[in-house]
Amino acid sequence: MRPVLVNGLGCYEAGSRLVLRELLKSAPAGAHLWVILPSGNRADLLAGAAVIHGIPLNHRVFGRWLRPLFELSLYLLGALGVFRRIVNVSNYGWCAPRWTPTVLYCHNALLVEGGQDEWSGKGGRPNWFKRWCLDSCLKRAEKVVVQTEHMAVRMSAYAARRGLGAAPIEVARPLPSFPETVKSVEKIFAFQFFYPASSFPHKRVELAVQAAILANREDSRVGLVLTGELPKRASCVRELGAISHETVMAHFAVSDALLFTSNQETLALPLLEAMHHGLPAVLPELPYAQDIYGEAALYFKSDEPREIAEAMMACVRESEKRRVRVTARREGEWNRRDSWSEHWNKFGVI
């Protein structure tokens, strides 16, 4: 039987890399997969029961400067019928002809927003080429799989705006896997908010920092711990730099609450990780956040640091009550999610 091609070139960092790693770990036994992935992520091929052949490529070269050539190569492989199926987990791609079934797994909300295309499209933001490739998938793919209902709505709205006859859109709600044991790290602040962030603009790190400073002025116990390569801000804010996912989970384990200010998310994996640890959360009043935390979270509507700081202080005062709500919410949330193994069913590989 011909193998399945998995295009994971776009899964080179943070949450997208975690998606590819979890999928490969849970690939069905006996499946014959050829996997394109960033050369720095070769270690992600080691786990799993499937027969996996890696095709490591330099992401900076083939994922950016030579991306059109890369997409043309995949299109030709699809046209020649080299693979029995193509599973594209890189959010977009030039879709192969219909005689090679292709499934797109899209987990980047920025691509379907109504904003203008950018020249470079850095940080996951759209440019004309990314959207042209995405449009080809919506026209010809067997199906498009997304992670949440609100992303399915946005994808359908995007297709309507572009005048596309959209491929079927299906939802696969991932349930992250959590380590059985967590490494030990030191708690930094008496009441510690944790924000696993990055330098991408939609994470709005500066907004989180300003809110934390205001909250600390009201209660000196309050502090914020951030991940990512960020400049030092204030004594009540600690920047950890780039850390492993294992260390991220360790900081969740010692923190008191989650602060999350991103205005563009699909799955919002850190919310599920915080819920796993029973943490109260201060979140933007947006569908991705409400879909996970429901009434268990404290929400802010505006982009004003003062409003976020007030929500943080309410979280401090109501911490124990909020933890009870989060625990009650978690069981129902977990029950409606799909394992990573079940994703392969939706991809048509099993």
Rank of each mutant, 00 (worst) to 15 (best):
A167T: 09
S177C: 11
K187C: 09
G93M: 01
L226K: 02
V146K: 06
H150E: 12
G114P: 10
D219K: 14
G93V: 02
T148P: 09
D135E: 14
A152Q: 15
N108Q: 15
L226A: 07
K139W: 12
A212F: 10
Q116L: 11
W119A: 15
A190T: 13
M151G: 04
G123W: 13
L207R: 03
P174E: 03
S177T: 13
P168E: 01
Q210I: 00
P176V: 09
Q192Y: 07
L207Y: 03
E118N: 06
I86F: 10
A197I: 00
W128T: 11
W128R: 15
G163C: 08
E142Q: 14
L134Y: 06
E206M: 10
A211D: 07
H150F: 13
R204Y: 05
A166H: 12
Y92R: 07
V185G: 08
S199E: 14
A190Q: 14
W119Y: 09
Q116F: 06
H202T: 08
R125M: 11
R131Y: 07
R204V: 03
Y158L: 00
G228S: 06
L111D: 04
S136C: 08
G93L: 04
V182A: 06
K122E: 14
N88L: 01
A157R: 14
G124T: 05
R154A: 12
M151C: 03
E149W: 12
A157V: 06
L164A: 03
C106K: 01
L104Q: 05
G115Q: 13
G223M: 08
E206C: 00
G163A: 09
N108E: 11
E113Q: 15
R98L: 09
L104H: 07
W99H: 15
Q192M: 11
E118A: 07
N88D: 12
A152T: 05
S199L: 02
V89A: 12
M151Q: 11
L214Y: 05
E206T: 09
G114Y: 02
A190H: 09
L164K: 01
V205R: 03
V144F: 01
H202W: 03
E170Y: 04
A159M: 10
G223H: 11
F193T: 00
S220F: 00
A160W: 06
M155Q: 06
P168K: 01
A197Q: 04
E142C: 07
F189L: 12
N91L: 07
L134G: 02
R84E: 12
Y158H: 05
G114W: 07
Y105A: 13
Y92I: 00
L175A: 13
A109Y: 12
K187P: 11
W94Q: 07
I213T: 07
V222D: 06
L224Q: 05
Y158M: 00
V87K: 03
W128F: 12
K122P: 00
A96V: 14
L175G: 04
R85N: 02
G114K: 12
P174R: 03
T181L: 08
V225F: 11
L138N: 03
P168F: 01
W119V: 14
F178M: 14
G123T: 00
V89T: 14
E218N: 11
V112A: 04
R161I: 11
K139N: 09
A159E: 10
I86E: 04
L134S: 01
L214T: 05
V87A: 07
L207M: 09
F200D: 15
